[in-house]
Design a protein around this nucleic acid. Structure first.
Length: 469
RNA sequence: GCCCCGAUGGUGUAGUGGCCUAUCAUGCAGCCCUGUCGAGGCUGCGACCCGGGUUCAAAUCCCGGUCGGGGCGCCA
């Protein structure tokens, strides 16, 4: 769980629960105040055991009727599960549990001998979902009650891992000289075409929610910010309903000047390598919490295996051949669909790049070189994807920096360059060649945590049929 | 947008026309016991998504609705 060793006391507690549990030996006899959720309340009569849990750990509070106010004793003893309770008392060594002959004696544990306390907030019964119950809960019930779901240790661990992934990713990009930016999410025109946008009213004007920071991060680079990244939301009004799609998702985006597609693939694989390495070094406790739950459900444990560098590159033309030889029906110029990815994934199960897509399948801002053609003569682009198994993680590429080519590309896909002057004007006064990518944070998390659904790793997911909570 | 599937106590489930005043687990309430520790023992509480239809008889079959799940397309 969280490392709270450096946390300061607050108005409600002198110590976090983990601080007491971890330093019990030093604290024996010391009066402490802790607060947490009542995980279990056992005992009826003269003594009572209250298992308290906060965001850092668990500890048993021991209550004896003789040692405290009788009314308080009764109210805590009859408190409902998940009520929040504050207790004050001296730290003591717990009596060792009975263990069967030959079983190892567990390490010493500590508890709080309660002298006073307070019920901070009472929990209704029954709980919509049990925080510690030994029953499966459907995803929909969990999402409707996410505030309780997140109290479950493996769910809590997943969201701590999410925070770590963002932290380590930032850490790495900053080490390579990228600076964090924020681009507008309210925009006037389609950024890329293709996907549907959510329309909105911006005062008297029609506007949309941004589907991607793409054009803005390019403008930032054209403006001389050199290397930029953004972690922010993107919105797509697509009526999909799958384990890997949401209508609002967080995208990890970068853009760098004087770089091409190969250069930014390098940034990406180094970043993922760094994230995995750091998780492996620092966050085994979180992985352990996830695995404990997986074991209870009969699932294999997840393992953090740092991927080898460089990731395989399977150019589009080669990918088509792999699919064909694997029995898939596909022709040059076709999209590589999920069932095709299954064939490729059988050969390349981990992370792999698919560079050099046909220009006709990539957005107008992707760069191409006239001399790079596919086997059947079609124009190739400098756009690439990053896949893990069958799932697409990333889309990226070298960008078109020649304004006259950019405008032609717009016309080729049926867009009017006149609608994009806010963007194309950025290229008229000298433009560095540049490249970048966008990575789906939740999809990366799925790989790391073994989650079978993006909704597992998004706190309050927005899909086709869910806008609350 | 297309295709498939599902809805039973708070939660997760059993159930394929009469054996269902509906199973089991968990939960909740109460009692007993107890320095417990996945506590234990006993008693009790609580459900067939909504509307129509078929039938002597519907949780079960049919139609419509609502909500949900899975897959595809598209994408991150």
């Amino acid at each position: 769980m969280r490392d709270s060793s450096e946390w300061k006391p607050t108005s409600y507690r002198t110590h976090t629960i983990d601080q007491v549990a971890r330093n019990g030996e030093k604290l024996v006899g010391t009066k402490v105040t802790v607060a947490g959720y009542a995980e279990t309340v056992r005992g009826r009569g003269a003594i009572c055991f209250l298992m308290l849990r906060d965001g850092t750990g668990k500890i048993q509070a021991f209550l004896k009727k003789d040692n405290m106010d009788e009314e308080l004793f009764d109210s805590i003893q009859s408190a409902t599960r998940e009520s929040t309770i504050q207790v004050t008392g001296k730290v003591a060594m717990k009596r060792a549990p009975k263990v069967a002959e030959g079983d190892p004696v567990p390490p010493p544990e500590f508890e709080v001998n309660v002298e006073s306390g307070d019920i901070l907030a009472h929990a209704d019964t029954p709980l919509p979902l049990g925080v510690t119950d030994d029953v499966r809960v459907g995803l929909d019930v969990r999402l409707d009650n996410r505030h309780l779901d997140v109290r479950r240790s493996h769910v809590n661990a997943m969201f701590q891992l999410r925070s770590k992934v963002l932290q380590y990713g930032r850490e790495h990009l900053i080490s390579e000289g990228f600076q964090e930016i924020n681009s507008p999410k309210i925009i006037a025109a389609a950024a890329e075409g293709g996907t549907n946008l959510f329309p909105m009213k911006y005062f008297e004007t029609d506007a949309y929610l941004s589907q991607s920071p793409q054009l803005y991060k390019q403008l930032a680079v054209l403006g001389g910010l050199e290397r930029v990244f953004e972690i922010g939301p993107a919105f797509r009004a697509e009526k999909h309903d799958t384990y890997r799609h949401l209508n609002e998702f967080v995208s990890f985006d970068i853009e760098g000047a004087w770089m091409d597609d190969e250069d930014v693939m390098g940034v990406q694989e180094r970043m993922i390598h760094h994230i995995w390495t750091r998780v492996l070094e620092n966050d085994q406790a979180l992985i352990g919490a996830v695995n404990e739950y997986r074991a209870s459900q009969g699932n294999d444990p997840i393992q953090v295996t740092v991927p080898e560098l460089p990731f395989p590159r399977i150019p589009y033309c080669e990918a088509i051949e792999i699919v064909k030889s694997g029995g898939g029906e596909i022709e040059w110029g076709d999209d590589i669909e999920s069932h095709h990815c299954d064939i490729i994934a059988a050969k390349y199960p981990g992370f792999h790049f698919i560079p050099r897509w046909p220009m006709s399948m990539k957005p107008f801002y992707i760069h191409h070189k006239d001399e790079e053609k596919g086997s059947s003569g079609g124009q190739l682009s400098r756009g690439f994807d990053l896949n893990y198994g069958r799932d697409e993680m990333t889309s990226g590429g070298a960008r078109e920096h020649r304004v006259e080519v950019l405008e032609q590309n717009l016309r080729d896909v049926g867009l009017d360059p006149g609608d994009f002057t806010f963007y194309t004007d950025g290229f008229r006064y000298g433009a560095p060649p540049h490249a970048g990518w966008g990575l789906g944070v939740a999809r990366l998390l799925m790989v790391l945590t073994g989650a079978g659904n993006v909704r597992e790793v998004v706190l309050f997911p927005r899909d086709r049929s869910r806008v609350t909570p």
